[in-house]
């Protein structure tokens, strides 16, 4: 049985998600940040965490963005295979939603990486589709700031590096990023797949709520081990020294080739804007 969904509903969902994400940080993130304040032994680090919480409360009350970099819009659509979109071009509808949401937000997109002319309306948003069973559509929006994006890394390792090699690469990425990525971070790790898949997995890992763990016990254990190692680097909030360098490490993994151990690390900053709706 086909379910018809007009593309305007997707457009409205995209606009609402992105508009609200700009000033309302996810509840799971704020809870984790609040819990981190008393654990941070560095007085300066604690001050930074308290300032970030105050900034979030002020932004929400005033309905102004928490961070001036409202990023690129990255949209994940899980589309039920029984859905039929009606009333026009879905991609155009999504871009209209992005354009409308960014009316009062910063325009941070250039149309060409070499010529670098600003598109003037923050389009295009980057769109990922996934076909799933059922007749529902889930839209998840990330407003991805590029301070942290710029410090993200990918490496196609040989299998011989093993879990130690993965561990070293993830911690090294956080160390190279230091203050640039605006810690406390959320660290998305992709493992496996091919060159393109592993980057996508790392980004998808950022969609998971803080507090969730990977269903596979060995990967859940690796998440905990990596978080511990990252929080021993001493980088701390804003890189000024301290314990709370990251609030969470999320791993997403996929099957891969006998000859490879692909690893990607996608960092998210202390303003991790994310919102989700099911239609």
């Amino acid at each position: 049985m086909l379910r018809e969904i007009p593309v305007t509903r997707i457009q409205e969902a995209v606009e609402t998600l992105l508009s609200e994400a700009a000033y309302r940080l996810p509840a799971d993130y704020l809870a984790a940040l609040e819990a981190a304040a008393p654990v941070e032994p560095s007085p300066l680090g604690r001050q930074v965490i308290e300032l970030l919480l105050e900034n979030s409360a002020y932004a929400q009350a005033e309905q102004i963005p928490t961070c001036q970099d409202t990023g690129m819009a990255i949209l994940f659509l899980e589309v039920g295979q029984d859905v039929h979109f009606t009333g026009g071009d879905l991609d155009a509808a999504i871009q209209n939603g992005v354009r409308a949401a960014y009316g009062g937000l910063r325009k941070s997109v250039v149309g060409d990486p070499i010529c670098r002319a600003n598109t003037g309306d923050n389009t295009p948003g980057l769109i990922h589709f996934e076909i799933v069973p059922g007749d529902r559509v889930t839209v998840t929006a990330l407003q991805k700031g590029f301070g942290a994006e710029l410090m993200s890394r990918l490496q196609m390792f040989p299998p011989s590096v093993g879990v130690e090699g993965v561990n070293r690469f993830v911690v090294e990425t956080v160390e190279l990023a230091g203050p640039n990525a605006c810690p406390p971070l959320i660290v998305g790790v992709g493992l496996g797949g091919a060159f393109d898949t592993v980057a996508h997995l790392a980004k998808k890992a950022l969609l998971r709520p803080i507090g969730s763990t990977h269903p596979a016990p060995h990967l859940a254990a690796l998440e905990a081990e990596l978080l511990d190692a990252i929080n021993r680097t001493g980088i701390g909030p804003q890189g000024l020294g301290g314990r709370v360098t990251a609030l969470a490490v999320h791993i997403e993994s996929a099957a891969t080739h006998i000859g490879a151990l692909p690893v990607a690390v996608n960092l998210n900053c202390s303003a991790p804007r994310r919102a989700r709706v099911e239609i």
Binding site: L52, E54, N55, I64, T66, C67, G147, Q238, S270
Partner: peptide
Amino acid sequence: AAAVGGAAALLA
């Protein structure tokens, strides 16, 4: 000098 990244609303 560094200002606190992510505290943009308060800095304004």
